[in-house]
């Protein structure tokens, strides 16, 4: 059985079949990309992994455990972290605090009434957060308010927040969406760098094909809610079905 296994997932929104019998198998330690044109159902599929949507039929199994019916925080506690299309960070807090929170969540679970001891007194947490900021080259910005970071740094911070929890699976939803080419390349480098340091299984949702070909070991192409091809990057590029899906060859 694969690390993340999606079997026969269907999801309907009214008259729209957003996901149509989707099957997917992600192997441990690899980067698996899901690409497809706009409206192919990529984000819907991702939302089915994290407890935001519940599929009409089908199963999503992660590490031998079903993810269906779990709330987002429960999915995270199982070991799945998510990076959003637009970085979701705690803008009003400092960079350091942004990283401390996931560390606390990892150590103390979904809820702990720890109202009497000081955050500064949690030596293990501080150390871990500090190390994480060093890893992503943001240690000098630790006392900055997260809202004042550049877009690229916000992405970097969000990545650091996810990584500080040592997730078993990292989901990335269009990590380069709306970025300039230079920023896109930076993000690709960051991802490659992370992959080198820690072999975390990743599922990357991407619109931009350029991003995934340099990263992914395996690519699934989604079109109109259906996986049309699943193969290695080199076989995807010239695949006629993929060209058809992206360029609208039907016409």
């Amino acid at each position: 059985m694969s690390f993340l296994e999606v079997r026969g997932v269907n999801k309907r929104f009214g008259g729209l079949q957003a996901l149509d019998d989707v099957n997917l198998a992600v192997e441990e330690g690899t980067i698996h990309a899901i690409i497809g044109p706009n409206g192919a159902g990529k984000s819907t599929l991702l939302n089915c992994f994290v407890g935001k949507l519940i599929p009409d039929t089908g199963t999503v199994t992660f590490d031998g455990q079903s993810l269906l019916g779990l709330k987002p925080h429960q999915v995270n506690q199982v070991g799945v972290s998510r990076v959003f299309q637009t970085p979701e960070i705690f803008s009003d807090l400092t960079v350091m605090e942004n990283v401390i929170i996931p560390c606390l969540a990892k150590r103390d679970g979904a809820f702990t009434l720890n109202g009497w001891s000081s955050v500064d007194a949690q030596a293990d947490i501080r150390e871990k957060a500090e190390q994480m900021l060093l890893d992503v080259n943001m240690a000098d910005k630790r006392n900055m308010q997260a809202a004042s970071l550049s877009r690229g740094d916000k992405r970097r911070l969000e990545m650091a927040m996810c990584l500080s929890q040592d997730p078993k699976l990292l989901l990335l939803d269009e990590p380069t969406a709306g970025m300039a080419r230079a920023d896109t390349n930076n993000t690709i480098d960051l991802l490659a760098e992370i992959q080198e340091k820690r072999k975390i299984t990743k599922v990357v949702i991407e619109h931009d094909m350029h991003v995934v070909f340099s990263l992914a070991q395996k690519i699934s192409v989604l079109a109109q809610g259906h996986v049309i091809v699943e193969d290695k990057p080199e076989n995807i590029k010239g695949h006629p079905k993929v060209k058809e899906a992206y360029l609208g060859g039907a016409h």
């Binding site: 998510r82 960070i89 605090e97 929890q165």
Partner: peptide, 20 residues
């Protein structure tokens, strides 16, 4: 405290808090 930090986190971004 960590509890207070979580409360401030709720004010700034509840989505991120849940996905954390």
């Amino acid at each position: 405290s960590p509890f207070g930090l979580m409360l401030r986190a709720i004010k700034t971004n509840q989505t991120r808090l849940n996905y954390t």
